[in-house]
Computed example of a mutant assay.
Amino acid sequence: MNWLIVITGAMIGAPLRYLTDRTVQSGHDSLFPWGTFTVNVTGCLVLGLLTGAVTAGAASSGVQLFIGTGLCGALTTYSTFSYETLRLAEDGARFYAAANVTASVVAGLGAAFTGATLARAVWG
């Protein structure tokens, strides 16, 4: 039955990723993949909040499966991040490739930490 919870979350996360990516990217005239960056950092923030909530007992394992595995699993995308970084490097935009890696890792970890800290403040 857990697989239905994950599928339901993914059914929301996948279109949300696509729509967010297209909306954000259309607002920027840049080689930098702002859409993918946005969904990945947002996903890290949500996962940080969720982890803190689960640790504090404020969220169930079902919520963790729905939001963490399903929604965030479909919302965030390491494969697209990798592909876009490789494409930037191959196209000669090495600065943007390096900036994508650096900014994504730093912002993603920062967002996850912020989410977990926020969760501790609310439910701790």
Rank of each mutant, 00 (worst) to 15 (best):
A111L: 10
D29W: 00
L109E: 03
V106C: 11
V39F: 08
L19P: 03
L75F: 12
L16K: 09
P33V: 06
T69N: 06
H28C: 04
G124D: 08
D91P: 09
V63P: 02
D21I: 00
G57V: 03
F81L: 13
T55K: 00
N2V: 11
A116S: 14
A53P: 09
A14R: 10
I67Q: 06
T77A: 06
M11A: 15
A111T: 13
Y83K: 09
G13Q: 10
F81S: 05
F37A: 10
A107W: 05
G110H: 10
G57Y: 02
D21A: 00
Y96P: 04
S30I: 02
D29V: 00
G73C: 01
A119Q: 06
I5W: 12
A74Y: 08
A74L: 10
T77I: 07
A103T: 14
G43Q: 03
Y18M: 06
L65W: 08
T51I: 00
Q64H: 09
S61I: 01
N40G: 07
L118Y: 07
L50D: 09
L88H: 06
A116K: 09
G92D: 10
M11V: 15
L4N: 12
G124F: 03
V46H: 06
L4A: 14
V46A: 10
T38N: 08
L65M: 15
V39G: 06
G73Q: 01
T69L: 04
V101I: 14
A107F: 10
L75P: 10
T117E: 15
S60F: 03
A116C: 08
T23R: 07
F37V: 08
A56G: 01
R22S: 12
G68P: 02
L118D: 09
G57S: 01
W34D: 08
L50Y: 05
A58Y: 01
A99D: 11
V63K: 00
C44L: 02
E84Y: 04
G57F: 01
E90N: 13
A121V: 09
L50S: 05
T76W: 04
T80W: 07
W123N: 13
G110A: 11
G124T: 03
V24K: 11
G9N: 09
V122M: 11
Y96T: 14
V39W: 06
I5A: 10
C72S: 03
V54E: 10
R94S: 13
R94M: 15
A121D: 11
A10W: 13
E90T: 13
G68I: 00
E84K: 02
T85I: 05
A103E: 11
V46S: 07
Q64W: 07
V105D: 08
L109T: 04
E84N: 04
L109Y: 09
A98M: 15
T77Q: 08
D29Y: 00
Y96F: 14
E84W: 05
W3D: 12
A111R: 09
R94E: 15
A103K: 05
L16T: 15
R87N: 13
P33E: 08
A107I: 08
T114N: 08
R120C: 00
G57I: 01
T69W: 05
D21T: 05
V122S: 06
T85D: 05
V63H: 00
G43F: 02
D91M: 13
G73V: 00
V105Q: 04
V6C: 08
G52I: 00
I7L: 15
V105T: 07
V6T: 10
R120T: 12
A56C: 01
R120P: 03
